[in-house]
């Protein structure tokens, strides 16, 4: 853990978790780095290198961008509203 930085969180719509959403991790230049699908409880997690990232969340309703800063040895927790 001390060597990793983690960006994780929950995708929600109107206060309820959204399972099956696609969350894309884009680097500071907008380059795609990774993608995960949220769990039934709307959760996602990335092992992201320290730095600034954008999370692009795709659902059947469209696309939402959220900023995130990953810190070495820390877990950054986010809530993404779609």
């Amino acid at each position: 853990m001390a060597k990793e930085s983690i960006v994780q969180g929950t995708v929600v719509k109107d206060g309820s978790p959204v399972g099956g959403a696609y969350v894309r991790l884009l680097d500071s230049s907008g380059e795609f780095t990774a993608e995960v699908q949220t769990s039934a409880t709307g959760a996602f997690r990335f092992f992201a290198a320290p730095g600034d990232w954008t999370l692009r969340t795709l659902t059947s309703g469209g696309s939402t961008d959220t900023s995130a800063a990953a810190v070495l040895g820390a877990v950054v927790e986010l809530t993404v509203e779609v």
Partner: peptide, 18 residues
């Protein structure tokens, strides 16, 4: 692979354990 894997910063995609 992703730029960070190519450069040698990461050994696996960022959503997988390293």
């Amino acid at each position: 692979r992703s730029p960070d894997e190519f450069s040698g910063k990461l050994l696996a995609p960022a959503h997988l354990p390293q």
